[in-house]
Structures are given as structure tokens and as C-alpha cells.
Amino acid sequence: MSVHPAPRTPSPDASAAALASLVVDLQARGLRVEVPLERRRGGAGPTDSGMLWVGGVPLTVPMDNASAAGSPYVLRAEDEGYAVFRDGERLAGASAQRRPRFYDLSTADGVPYWKIGLLHLDSFASTVVQTCAYWGNADQCRFCGIEVSLDAGRTIVKKTPEQLAEVAVAARELDGAVDATLTTGSSNGVDRGARYVARCARAVKQAAGLPVEIQFEPPRDLDVIDEVGEMGVDSVGIHVESFDPDVLARVAPAKARTGIERYFEAWARAVDVFGRGQVSTYVILGMGEDPGVTLDGCRRAVDLGVFPFVVPLRPVAGSLMEDALPPDGAYTERMYRAVAGYMAARGMHSSIAKAGCARCQACSGLTPVASALRSSPLLQIGRPPQAG
């Protein structure tokens, strides 16, 4: 049974295009908050953000960085729930995730459940191994904060399959979790950590009955992807981060050495195993990428059956890019339109995904932009946007 307020539906007079633009701008500029709100601080995932529904759209919004402190948007309480305002004008109703009940529980050996897994709106999520072979050396991904939460004592180094299964059951029964997303830092092994996170996924599925996505880098031996499928995993995220090779070399040197073509090889194998729409990749906007190269990569991924999960850069406190600025909302929205338009033409949409980030969509504006395009096809653009 879910204990968070039911997400609201858009008001009849709120156009899909206006809601999409609001969502995109909120993710670019952040949100000032005048009410208590459950939020995620530091580390991997949608960090330094609040989790809420705006106009019925699931959303993670920056609330704890410099941009948010100067945002023109503010979240205020109403008689029933909350609303987003700008310059005193009410723009959209909102509802927030309350503190999950399972956070108040602990394992038999005293580990708080919230150190094992978190609730991202309606998704149970965990970084099962909170260390990475790239952290603290020249290969560290500049946008990543995987070990920040570990250093702050907000998690444990390695979660066991048994711990994750126990907490996932509580997340489903007490807080209405509908799927699980398990990720991991990269290892130097042949499987890059995929086998262990798949074992954890199998335990969660068997205990909680939730569909599960796991995330890992392309294994050196692609047969590992078949092994992962045999363990009952539903969806996988294999994240290239950027299709621009120059950007990738600058922000994620180890991924650049893997090479973008190797990602396509891994995706092709994964689509064969898990099916079209069950394989996704993060594509981060705002790191200086070439828009044309980025859109070409997204289109090629869609043609292969891969969901390009396009998101704006969200600078993480404690990462090597903590002082970077998120991309301009207008640029991000134009890129969303181009990607969403192509995905619609190819029959790719978030409802296909069984689990994971592509199913949840809260960190991206793709879904509301896609809804706006369905309402007003003329919003689509025919040429790549200029970087913003």
C-alpha cells in the first residue's frame, strides 16, 4: 500500500506544452522550497534533489545547489497539497513524497534500511557496491558522486542480496514500490561488476516480486549479458553518458577508452537478450556536446531498440564538476523535442520499459515533452539545436 499522496493530474486549463516547459525549466533552474520535503542529498542517483509530482508528472528537482537558491520558482503549501509559483502566479499543483515508512526499520544486525536502499518516488533503488575502480584517480568520471555518500556515512560499502531482498519487500509492502533499480560502481573484472548486481536483482525478484533493472558498464566478455538475462533481470541500463567522443574523453576517460562503438555492440547483445525498449542509456546534456552528434547517436540507439534516457547535467556536490552550470532549459527542451519526436516515429516510449530509469522518467523531461508533441506536432523541430 502506498503512503505518499496520490499524484495529481494536470488541470484542464493547463496545456501539455506549458507543463512540459515548466518541468524542463524546473530541472534547469531548480526550486526553492517553503515546506518540509523529502529529498536526496549527495552521492549517486538524483542527488541534492526533491522528489515530487508537478501537474501529475513525476519529477526530481534540484533544491540544494546554487541554482536552486536563486530559482524564480517556489514550492508553497495549499489547502490540499502544494503548488509551484513564479512571481506570485500559481503555475501547477504539486504533491510530494512523504518520508517512506521503511526508512524507520533496521536489519537484525542494526543497519538502517535507508542505508541499503532508497525510494525514488515509486521505485526502490540502491547502489549495491558503493565504490568504483575509477574513483580518486585519473579515470574518475567528472560528473559522478558515487563515493560521496559513502564518505558521509549515508550508506554501506556493499549490500548483500539478502539485505536488498529484505528491504525491497518492506519498500513494496509499506510504501508501494513498483520496481527496483540496482546499480554499481565499475570493477576491473571481466564482467565489470554485472554478475554481482544481477545476483542481487535475482534475490529482490524472488523475495519482493518486483521487476528489476540493473546498470553496469559493457563487460569485456559480452556473454556476461546472456548470464545476466538468465538470472531473471528484466531491464538493463548500459550508460554511455555522451555520444560526443571529445566530451566523453574529457569527462569520462575510462568510458572513452571503452569506445562508443563498444557500447553499441553491448546494446545490440542486450536487446537480443532483454528485448526492444528494455535496454537504456543515459545521455547527459550540458557538457559541451555537439548537438548534431548527440542526436545522431540517440537516433541510432533508438533504431537498435535502445531507449536514450536524455537528462540535463545535474552538478553533484563533491564531484569534479560540482561547480558546473546546468544547461539552459531552452536548449534542453529543443533536444528533448528532437529525440522525443524520433522516438515517437519509431514506436519507442517509456511505457515499454518494465523497470528502471526509463520506466520512472522523473529525472528527464522526455515524457512531458513527448506528451506535448502528441498534442501539438508542430512543436517538433527539423534541425539539431545549437548548444546552449
Results as ranks from 00 to 15, higher is better:
Asp79Ser: 13
Ala340Cys: 06
Arg29Lys: 15
Ala180Asp: 00
Arg276Lys: 13
Val157Pro: 04
Leu366Met: 07
His120Asp: 08
Ala16Trp: 05
Lys158Asn: 07
Gly232Gln: 12
Ser375His: 07
Val23Glu: 07
Arg32Gln: 15
Pro12Trp: 10
Asp104Ile: 09
Val247Tyr: 07
Arg202Ile: 04
Gly42Gln: 04
Leu313Trp: 13
Ala387Met: 08
Arg299Phe: 15
Ala108Met: 04
Thr131Glu: 12
Ala194Asn: 03
Ile238Tyr: 00
Met348Gly: 12
Arg142Trp: 06
Thr367Ser: 14
Asp272Lys: 14
Ala83Ser: 15
Val111Met: 10
Val339Phe: 04
Val157Thr: 15
Thr367Lys: 03
Thr367Phe: 03
Gly232Leu: 13
Ser186Gln: 08
Gly93Leu: 12
Asp151Phe: 00
Thr9Val: 13
Pro10Arg: 11
Pro245Met: 10
Val111Leu: 00
Asp104Ser: 15
Leu320Thr: 14
Glu162Val: 05
Val302Ala: 12
Leu37Asn: 02
Asp122Ile: 09
Arg101Val: 06
Leu285Met: 09
Ser126Phe: 03
Ala180Lys: 01
Gly193Asp: 01
Ser187Thr: 09
Lys115Glu: 08
Gln380Thr: 03
Leu174Asn: 01
Ile260His: 02
Ala171Pro: 07
Ile260Leu: 11
Arg39Thr: 02
Ala18Ser: 15
Met63Gly: 01
Gly81Leu: 08
Gln361Leu: 13
Tyr263Ser: 00
